[in-house]
Design a protein around this nucleic acid. Structure first.
Lengths: 366, 366
DNA sequence: CGAGTCTTTGCAATCGATTGCTATTTTTGT
DNA sequence: ACAAAAATAGCAATCGATTGCAAAGACTCG
């Protein structure tokens, strides 16, 4: 991100990590900043001009004489002065900050360190910092129906991104009706106002289940928490695939994402179904990874006796043993789509929802 | 300034967009909210009191009559009014925002999705949002020696956390001399001013190497990028352990963290050393995971022919097959320590550095 | 009954940068 | 040489909430 006042165009030559700036005066005695300037007025007095001129000079406006401009800029640099962003933003009514919100409606624990969210967040950071925005992360446990209003009305944000609908679709939908610069990662529903970006979860569920069916599996289990629309769609997709295959059955087992509960819950599921299952559709790679580990502990071979599919295609899924067969969501492309939609909406235009097509990545586990 | 690394262009063909039913008009003003109040003055006029009173009422100060106070609060709620944070912050000189900075001095690529950083970041978010702070993420590729100054002087932050020293210790040290609310994740050096929280990396390296030596390994390799002090310390620790064991040798192989380069680099390393190595100390769990995967592909048994240790003890290390023997950093405890140190420093007190002791977690890979 | 205390509320300064408008120079054109 | 046009710089209003201080009204008490 750039908390920098002005961004000079990124000069690729300067990106070289090892190239140090040829600073005029480097670390020598810089601990003692020459009399710290705290606002534009002081710098103005020092330069013998008015505050307005300093402001314009620092913004590099051609309105002020080139010489004075450079003199002021040099002075500012020398004193390590940087204009107060808070005042700037109050005045300009633009904050340059995008809020990223993760609502935890049905998952109270530790959701935020979930690799999927973090990966998406990382890509979003890459995208948005490029256009000079800062990212502010808010982790919200919705206690009422106003949590999103509070965020978008806080006056601190130019726009907001919501990662995951959780069970808060209604709230999001309501806010989306009056707050434009809002983009959601999640499922698209016909006729909804909110602008979503996400994968076709039903198609993804179908792909995963179909893969298991194609391998000959008939008794299929689904591990995941279906309280949010996304996972529910994946289950529905899997159900569709199973329904079109005679003799195949599907049963769903609730499985939380929180990592500590997850393992014991999956263990319980496995003991529950015993050896009567030959394929498992997992709602995420993390669930799949844990499931495989637990099957391994029970001496059940994957994929020979039970085939397992994941969802997400996180980087780790190809580093596992066995490598994970999974449904790929292109997180980088998703982040790019979210950023693009938000940019459009920030400039007042409309932006449509984006539904990406998932892709089945066949590796070893199924 | 921070510049995002380059992403490979996505296959946009697979994105399919659905236009929203309600094409053009995005701006359905009015809508549900009764005539939108935009500032305290308007609300004050509506309530028939002065702005100051409204401000105090909203802050729930006992200074204003309980009845008027409640009346104003009700009015504010009814109109969905929320005071402008930017103005509030300009006036109070407190932002409630903590900056989290990840300097990428020697790693230009995609560092941010590194699971370790993300996990730590997640825990930090949990800790700090609890005390009412927001987190702003800044990913910085230091182009000069002022990147940190720009961030802490931006006037947007109450404090800052730096995750990883990279090769920027000197810059951090200089800033730490004048900016107090600053806490660093990284290595502690005698006599330094910066407040760090981190694990004793040398001890960790020693533990890992010693484990391999104890298993009988004598020709040890180290995989990791030693440009930053942290990994360098781990290597130094490993070297110490090897030095005290007659006949044992250690050789270091540079290995970047960026996930795409890493695999090929490790593959090259492995081919380089051929079968002449019987133990590998990896500088992170991710490196270890990739290494094991590649050894597996080459038909080299882990730990029978080559024993491998990781570093970090990420959640995934116990879900792998084989489970990873690794040096544990307690990331949650680290995040707690960072948050606590920052809180102290925010309230003007001093806070010492924290050096945590690493712990060897013996599982299957060594 | 008037002085002294409390409660409440209002007024106006403040935080620090931005920017429309005005007031000075220069410079140019004829 | 004189009017008109540019080029510069300054003044002061503004963004919206907070808060010290003053003031007005309500109440107590000797």
């Amino acid at each position: 991100m750039a908390i920098a006042p002005h961004h000079p165009a990124p000069d690729m030559a300067q990106l070289c990590a090892f190239k140090r700036a040829r600073g005029t005066r480097l670390n020598m005695d810089d601990g003692v900043k020459p009399g710290r300037i705290k606002n534009i007025a002081e710098l103005a007095r020092l330069a013998g001009v008015s505050a307005g001129t300093v402001s314009r000079a620092l913004a590099d406006m051609s309105l002020v004489n080139k010489e004075t401009r450079e003199r002021i800029q040099a002075l500012a640099r020398e004193h390590g002065f940087r204009p107060n962003q808070m005042a700037r933003r109050l005045r300009t009514q633009r904050t340059g900050v995008i809020g990223v919100v993760i609502p935890l409606g049905h998952e109270r624990r530790q959701h935020i360190s979930d690799p999927f969210f973090m990966t998406l967040f990382g890509y979003l950071a890459d995208e948005l910092t490029e256009s000079g925005h800062d990212l502010m992360l808010s982790r919200v446990i919705p206690g009422d129906d106003e949590w999103l209003d509070r965020i978008v009305d806080s006056g601190m944000l130019d726009g907001a991104l919501v990662i995951g609908q959780s069970n808060q679709s209604a709230v999001i939908e309501r806010v989306a009706q009056y707050y434009k610069p809002l983009v959601i990662w999640g499922s698209h529903r016909e006729g909804q106002v909110q602008c979503t970006v996400g994968v076709d979860n039903a198609a993804g569920g179908r792909l995963a289940a179909q893969r298991l069916l194609d391998r000959g599996a008939r008794k299929i289990a689904f591990f995941g928490d279906t309280n949010g629309p996304e996972i529910a769609d994946r289950l529905a997709g899997a159900q569709q695939a199973v329904d079109t295959t005679p003799g195949a059955t599907l049963s769903a087992f609730p499985t939380h994402l929180a990592s500590d509960e997850m393992a014991s819950q999956i263990a319980a599921n496995l003991d529950d179904i015993g050896g009567s299952v030959d394929g498992i559709v997992c709602a995420s790679d993390i669930i799949a990874m844990t499931t495989i580990r637990l099957l391994h502990e029970r001496g059940i071979a994957v994929p020979e006796r039970v085939a397992v599919t994941g969802f997400d295609d996180l980087p780790l899924s190809q580093r596992m043993v066995p490598q994970l067969t999974t449904v790929r969501q292109d997180i980088a492309a998703g982040a790019r789509a979210m950023a693009e939609a938000l940019r459009l909406r920030l400039s007042g235009e409309d932006a449509p929802s984006t539904v990406m097509q998932p892709e089945l990545i066949i590796r070893e586990s199924a």
